[in-house]
Design a protein around this nucleic acid. Sequence first.
RNA 1: GGCGACAUAGCCAAGUGGUAAGGCAGAGGACUGCAAAUCCUUUAUUCCCCGGUUCGAAUCCGGGUGUCGCCUCCA
Length: 469
Amino acid sequence: MTIKLYNTMTRRMEEFVPLREYEVGFYVCGPTVYDYFHIGNARVFIVFDVIRRYLEYRGYEVNYVQNFTDIEDKMINRAREMGITVEELAEKYIEAYLEDADALGIRRADVHPRATEHIPEIIKIIQKLMEKGLAYEVEGDVYFDTASFPEYGRLSYQDTGELESGSRVEVDERKKNPMDFALWKKAKEGEPSWDSPWGRGRPGWHIECSAMAMKYLGETLDIHAGGPDLTFPHHENEIAQSEGATGKRFVRYWMHVGYLNIDKQKMSKSLGNILTVREIHKKIDPQVVRFFMLSAHYRSPINFNFELLDQAKSGLERLNTLIYALLDLKEKAQEKPLEDKDRDIMEKVEKYRNKFEESMDDDFNTADALAALFELARETNIYLKDGMHNLQVIEKILNTYRELGDILGLFTNLEKEELDTEIEELIQKRQEARKAKDFATADSIRDQLLERGIILEDTPQGVRWKRKS
RNA sequence: GGCGACAUAGCCAAGUGGUAAGGCAGAGGACUGCAAAUCCUUUAUUCCCCGGUUCGAAUCCGGGUGUCGCCUCCA
């Protein structure tokens, strides 16, 4: 009954045991807010949103923190290009992030800290590193001294010696070691800057996450997560800074998502194939995007294109159709004693709920968990085939889909809605025409409704409608 | 050069020692006035290739091949 997850640090599956029994400190590296976020970011945010929800379902109190990087080279450059301040740029894209994330059903974090609001905390850590001799200053820049932190490279299994030879980066001669990274950067003309013991400047990228994570979650986090390319150097550097400063273990479990490629190609600026979720939402229901992301294991690399999204859409529709049917039948079902077939399906509901949980317990295998929902769908459809249904059963099935769907962030927007009276009348008219065997009229009304986005289904329990998606 | 991931049907994708989930698409059938939805049947004697271990391997080991990635402040 315990959750197992893959820890990047140990490269093993491990039982999840948080530091405090029922609480989980969970930090996810958030976006640098210099543009709309892309579909690869979306995968990361969706995956960890689901993991967060599952941990809550499992009874943990999750403290979920996701930062906004609002000061960084990319921010500065972009702001300059757009002719606005870095602050204005951040405001614009933080707002855009929240809109796009909301649309994808990504719940807001408990805290969304911003780097620029944590400068004192950042400086404090750097000071501590200086005191301990783990950092050094050169002309207003402060670097972390990787040579004095023997653990460096443990997360990414990199040998520092080998890294040097493979590095194609121009070596900054002022650094003691090519691997050393900036904790504090001296301000250049026209850049946002803050006062510090080393003069005016701004924080390096890595230090902000350490500062914010520890501020909100304490010196040891349970889970620290992010995109695949953050493992090195970002997370490696975070460990060095944090553990260097506190002398304590920084993170118990490191989690990283697999890559998302577009048409089997890496998404990159140079290829010009970066797809923002904002762009995708113009064509595709965000729920479909979500379903698509969850249909593969989070650590597998996945390929993205619109054809695959279409496949996902059809699959999701199958489940959605069932839920529409259940909502409709709930109104028609009766309160009555349970019969054998009722008990039978209720047992199956439990069986598939268990299967769902087992899959999720096993390193959050959402693809497998979805299979349980599909299998339950088939059983349910068989149950629904004939007769008048038992209200208790319909409610149990519906609640199960709601509850498990809520973990995945699916089926959340499916509600029984009232139709326009005009459409109601059309449906009524068609029913009369059918009764009178005037099928020409009936079919023409059906076509008419289809054009208005209403799909009709004639079932033994009467006519049912759903919206075309 | 160092580190790593992946390769399962037409497509997507679970499965890490016990005889191939699930979804999409296709075909046939049932239901229907016709549809839609749904159900049933069907689609991998086989999991990139070659060896090996084992009573038994998609799963473990060795060697290939292919694709992709990190080692650059790209999630």
